[in-house]
Each structure stands twice: as C-alpha cells, then as structure tokens.
C-alpha cells in the first residue's frame, strides 16, 4: 500500500525517465549484447557446423547433436561423472554449511575466529594454489596417507589413482568450501523470530521438532536460492578436474566443462564444443525451471 503510494507520487513528480534510465543501464545493455548475446548466437550457429578455427565452418545440420547422443560414449561418461559430482557435492556442502552455521549461532568470545576459520577455505578455495595443494595432499605419499599412518592406520591408498576414490577427493574439496553458504545461512538463521522458538518450547516441542518445524521451513527460501546457484556452478566445475586429476584415472573425473574445453581447444572441434555447451545450457535451464515449479511444494515464503 505504502509502496504503491510512493510509486504514484514518484510518477507524478518525475514522470517517465526513459532517457536517463536507458543511459544509466546502457553499459550493461552494450556489454550483455556484445559479450553474452552475440557469443551465444555465434555458438548456436557453430553448433550446427564442423569448425576447426583454421578453415571456414561447414554446415552439417544437427550432426554434432546426433554424434553426441549416439556414437560418443565419452559424452555419456562425462555427463554421468559430472552429475555424480554435483549430486554429492552440493547437498553435502549445504548440509555442512547449515550444521556449522547453527553451531556458530552461539555468541562467544571466539565467534569471530571461528567464523573466519570456517569461511577462509571458500575465499581461497577457487585458486590454482589450493588445487595444486590438493593434488599433493591426496597422492600416494601425500599428507593424508602420512597422517593416517601417524595415527596408526596403515594407509597407502592412491586416492587419485583409482576410479573409486578419485572423484571423492574432488567432492571433499567442494564440501570444504562451504564457508560462503554458511554465512548466508547464518544471516538467515538470525532473522528467524525468537518468538517462534519460545512459543514452540512452551507447547512442548523438543530440539529436533523445533529444527524440522521452524528452522528448516523458515530457511527454505535461502536453501532454494543457494541450491540453484550451486547446481549451476557445480555442473560447470572445471579447475578441479583440469588441475587436480586431469580427468584421470580412465576419465572417472573428467568433468563436462573440461570435456568441452578439450574438444574446443585441444582437439580443435569448436563446433562440437559449442554443441556440448548448448546441451548443458538446455539441461541446466530445464533443471532450474523444474526446480522453480517445485518451489511451492517445499519452499516457504512468509506472506506479508
């Protein structure tokens, strides 16, 4: 109501601001068109061609897409690997973030230190330095095995060398970087009215009940937004696969984005790379759409 009044008043005093409005957002419109829309359209065109950069692109219709789904066994493998990574890394990271956020709700003298310590890995986690470190930590003579030996477990597992464990080192790296999600949950938790917990306690609700009936429902909008963001970046994970494992062993850690990169820049199959990119856009777009549709089943928005 109040909002509407303000808007009406604004319209009366200012009227339309088409010219200054577009002037202010002009940088975005230009940048978005030149660096996103035009490349996306180019990519759509190239996805229907065979193109190696050196020779002009040759129109081959939907051949790239047919190849992908019928004769490229690696495509299926790569998609499966990436899917598995996302399906484990994203929920684990969110669960960890929520757990630690609840732990840090308590105000103590060390709160500042704790918050910084848990947040730091996600600040530097995306860097090449950490990827290189990770690679050395999980090698056969790496610090993980040595620490296990130091506490008496005789471990000589080549974590990065066998198919069953290699992907898990990458998942652990992703979960390790739960810091920024944790901060988001922390501020979400602080916004839940204390009165809700108080009246629930008076009505005899115990800890788990309060968590599942108050905390979790009140956090669902935050969880929803984080979930979508992390699904998108999870499906596009690249650095881990490229630097830590190079997709080895036997392509068990070859991520989709890395496979796209290989095709375009190492095998000079730009057209095929673009087709791969478009399939991922469609897939992630569809996933986001479906998630938005399921919103009303599980995301709780307070009505004002």
């Amino acid at each position: 109501m109040k909002e509407k009044k303000v808007r009406e008043r604004r319209h009366r005093t200012i009227g339309n601001q088409n010219v200054p409005g577009y002037l202010f957002i002009a940088p975005f419109i230009i940048g978005f068109s030149c660096f996103t829309i035009i490349p996306m359209l180019m990519s759509l065109y190239y996805s229907f061609t065979q193109y190696d950069i050196y020779n002009p692109p040759q129109w081959i219709g939907v051949q790239n897409y047919i190849t992908m789904f019928t004769s490229d066994a690696l495509f299926k493998k790569v998609f499966g690997v990436t899917f598995r990574y996302v399906i484990f890394a994203v929920p684990l990271r969110l669960a960890m973030a929520l757990m630690i956020a609840m732990l840090l709700l308590r105000n103590t003298k060390l709160s500042g230190f704790y918050r910084a310590a848990y947040y730091l890995p996600s600040v530097i986690g995306a860097s090449v330095a950490v990827a290189l470190l990770w690679r050395r930590m999980w090698s056969k003579d790496g610090v993980v095995n040595l620490l296990m030996q130091a506490v008496g477990i005789n471990s000589t597992v080549p974590w990065l060398g066998q198919e069953s464990t290699a992907i898990w080192t990458l998942i652990i790296l992703a979960v390790w970087q739960f810091g920024s999600s944790m901060l988001i949950f922390l501020s979400g938790l602080k916004q839940i009215p204390v009165a809700l917990y108080e009246s629930a306690t008076i009505d005899g609700a115990n800890g788990p009940q309060r968590f599942f009936k108050i905390t979790l429902p009140m956090l669902t909008p935050t969880i929803f937004f984080n979930l979508i963001n992390q699904l998108i970046s999870g499906f596009m994970a690249f650095t881990q696969s490229y630097i830590i494992t190079q997709g080895k062993p036997r392509n068990s850690t070859l991520f989709y984005a890395y496979y796209m990169y290989q095709n375009s820049f190492q095998f000079s199959k730009m057209g095929y790379g673009c087709a791969l990119a478009w399939i991922m856009v469609l897939f992630v777009g569809l996933l986001t759409f479906v998630l938005f549709r399921t919103q009303k089943l599980w995301v709780y928005y307070e009505t004002e």
Binding site: F28, Y46, I53, S233, A257
Partner: peptide, 21 residues
C-alpha cells in the same frame, strides 16, 4: 531479468564463442 541471467550464466558456457569473437 537479463541481468539476473547474466549473473547466473557461467563463463564456461560462453568461453568458446568469446574466444572466437
């Protein structure tokens, strides 16, 4: 909405055509 899309769109998707451009 375009701005929100740009925010969500990963660089990996547009890197190939950007390179060509």
């Amino acid at each position: 909405s375009c701005m929100l899309v740009a925010m969500m769109l990963p660089f990996q998707i547009i890197m190939i055509p950007q390179y060509l451009l």
